[in-house]
Nucleic acid binder design. Sequence first.
RNA 1: GGGAGCAUAGCUCAGUUGGUUCAGAGCAUCUGCCUUACAAGCAGAGGGUCCGCGGUUCGAGCCCGUGUGCUCCCACCA
Length: 873
Amino acid sequence: MELSKNFDPASAEEKWYQHWKQKGYFKSVPDKRTPFTLVIPPPNVTGVLHMGHTLNETVQDILARNARMNGYNVCWVPGSDHASIATEAKVVDMLKKEKNISKKDLTRESFLKYAFEWKEKYGGIIYHQIEKLGCSVDWDRVTFTMDDDYYKAVIKTFVSLYRDGLIYRGARMINWDTVAKTALSDEEVEYRDVQGTLYYVKYQVVGSNEFVTIATQRPETIMGDVAVCANPDDERYRHLKGKKVTIPMVNRMVPVIFDSYVDKEFGTGVLKITPAHDINDFNIGLAHNLPVIDTLNEDGTLSEAAEIFVGVDRFEARKRAVEFLREKGLLVKEENYSSRIGYSQRTHSVVEPRISTQWFVKMKDLAAPALQEVQNGNIRIHPHEKFIATYQYWLENVKDWCISRQLWWGQRIPAWYDEEANLYVGESEAEARAKYGLNDSVSLRQDNDVLDTWFSSWLWPMQVFNGITNPENEDYNYYYPTTVLVTGQDIIFFWVARMIMAGMKFSGKKPFSDVYFTGMVRDNLGRKMSKSLGNSPDLLQLIHEYGADAVRFGIMISSPAGNDLLFDEASLEQGKHFNNKIWNALKLIRMWSNHSDFGKIEKQEASELFATDWFEAKLREARADVNELIAQYRLSEALKTIYSLVWDDFCSWYLEWIKPAYGTSISKDTYEKTLRYFDSLLQMMHPFMPFITEEIYHILDDRDTDLMMTQNPSEGKVENGILKDAEHLKSLITATRDARNKFKLQQKEPIALYIETNSAKDYTKISTILQKQVFASAIHLNSRPEGNAVQVVCGNEKLHLVTEKEVDTGEQKDQLQKDLAYLKGFLISIDKKLSNEKFVQNAKPEVVELERKKKADALEKINVIEQSLKSLG
RNA sequence: GGGAGCAUAGCUCAGUUGGUUCAGAGCAUCUGCCUUACAAGCAGAGGGUCCGCGGUUCGAGCCCGUGUGCUCCCACCA
């Protein structure tokens, strides 16, 4: 078979993914082996995968494939999340744009039909991308958070928590999204610093000409004021005790009250109390028995209760209120003021604090075991230091979780009300009736709200194995707790912490043993990826352009554990080059077997044996390093180690060392060994770059096994001596090549090489390779040539390059003198150390000994250089 | 306001218990090469006050203190 000039990713990807799938390699069923379980962080069915997913999925696939090759029974469960609010918003948008249908014209059922169609479409796109990336997920286990069983699990969980007294319904101040028209949890609100204005407004004291001035950012809420409040210790306002003030615009009279909450120093020291629209005001209102006047509608327009600007949007109303106050002369001054404003994570609209009746989960009792499990080390977080404090702080200060959403897309809250609004909770209406002893004459209607999306995803590691709906099943008992969770650090509270809570509560076990947090993917300027910046590349396009292996390589090589990843297509380019390099190594090796004399020479020569022994040792060393790095989740460094092993050690050194002279054939033994090493390299690379490695594995040899299912060898001891010998050889080669470069001797300019040395080094094993690698006509040991030659010092050996060509000895001298100066400085610092009595007394003996050896080495090198300089005259 | 993390070559980052040439890697740059696997390549090279200051120590990139700068998380001061 003739091999193409370069690796063709597209055909290999299609071929091998289908092959693996058909062979059932991705599929997992419980057996006697140790399980290695991963559950994919289910992507939202709102759209397509972005670079963050790509990073995440790649990391998981590397871990999965690595574990599979280490003998584990790997199960990686794929799936997607219904993403209640995000998807509903997208569907509403689509309906309006594409079909000109408004949500309010649809019934719940028909809306859900559209939503499920949406899910089919985008879920399919996501799964296709996961496949293109090469992810070895078990496709028989695809789970969606609105599957029937999953839906049941969520409902079951709700009922169980309710019956445990951990879920309650009540009117509280919550975060209201005026665009999606739903409540949000605290976590769904993002705060941003915004430059605003502080308005100083005069309120007239009733029955006097006196005014009090209050500072507010939200003059449009003045109509909801029910009091003004000062600090009881504030001399300036003490005389107002028992008085009332008139609220501007609506001219309502409200009391002056006193509360130590008010900061005397801030603004004017007087606060307006608007319980419906500010959490602090709400609390003060409660303490002082004040009424609540809600002046906003659910869409953010002013309500009837406002009396003025009714139906006007809150921001427009603010402008008009300011205008109004200014005209009436009640606006004393305006000043710039920066404050933090909450925005909805999904609709990006300004969140409105609002009193509303919602469902909540009591978090305190759930938090304690979740915190303990991490603190006692049962769950390990990587990288540890960075997130442990954040995790702990959140759990220790956790607030109740608002879980009801005024949406249709999601699990509908299993609560029913009779005509007197009495509440019945049950897994179904029938179950609720039975539980509460209601007969059919009582008519019930179900709560309209659905549950927060995270109230379903917190069950993910359990319910993908039906652990909630059927806790006694074999899969669940075998695969759960899962092994490692790989996810973005941005959802540590939304998801990770809550999964741990749910795990501890519902299974009594942690949901996973390790958590690996990936950083955020940014562009190469450090900016967040976003559609508006146009810096968010399309995954399929990248795969098309570079190949899946190159994409995986590129994203992993620049991905330090836990840090943000600055995505740069240059690293994908690097990945593509690497693929090509591997491909060309394959071509070279294959070429050797095509030589007409191939097979006639069985045995290796000494130099070949040296090369193969060395590479075998090198391979073992690297494999041990890589295993260690992967165990520590330092995947980027593991990949760098492999990259350097393949490119530098295998291609640049080893293959050149064993390359047969022009026209001659390689020995069979060397060839066979080389194939074995190549196999080993493929094995090490496979988790990172599955397609090209599988492709080459099959080109190298006609076999019925597949690389993906081969097992890594158990470790042997690394032979150290030969590694040192090879380093010595490399340094001689490099020094000679460097000398050629410096003294303008073309690479093939004939030279004879003389090596002068005092040490008892063995050159027999390496001289053949050395001669070949530096294009020397001959190598003379422990002798020096007559006449002129280029002299170069390599450690404590002196090399002479004898050539016909005229050589500029001046340049040589400069170079030697530079080296000499450095060494002399080095010697002084060592002498200083050794003549320091405290050092000699206090340092460990081996350290002192080492310094003595360094000194001796330096002296010898200096001696060599000085001799050279002398001979140069 | 509270907390966490970071600062090492032009860029992105390694650097484990303080001690081996410890000052490293990749990318980028420069020089020379179209050499029979690969120019998507080969062979070499240059490049750093380890953020500043102070301390501990025989010895600090590493430990302690402090200052500066950056990033992130949390928090109800109008």
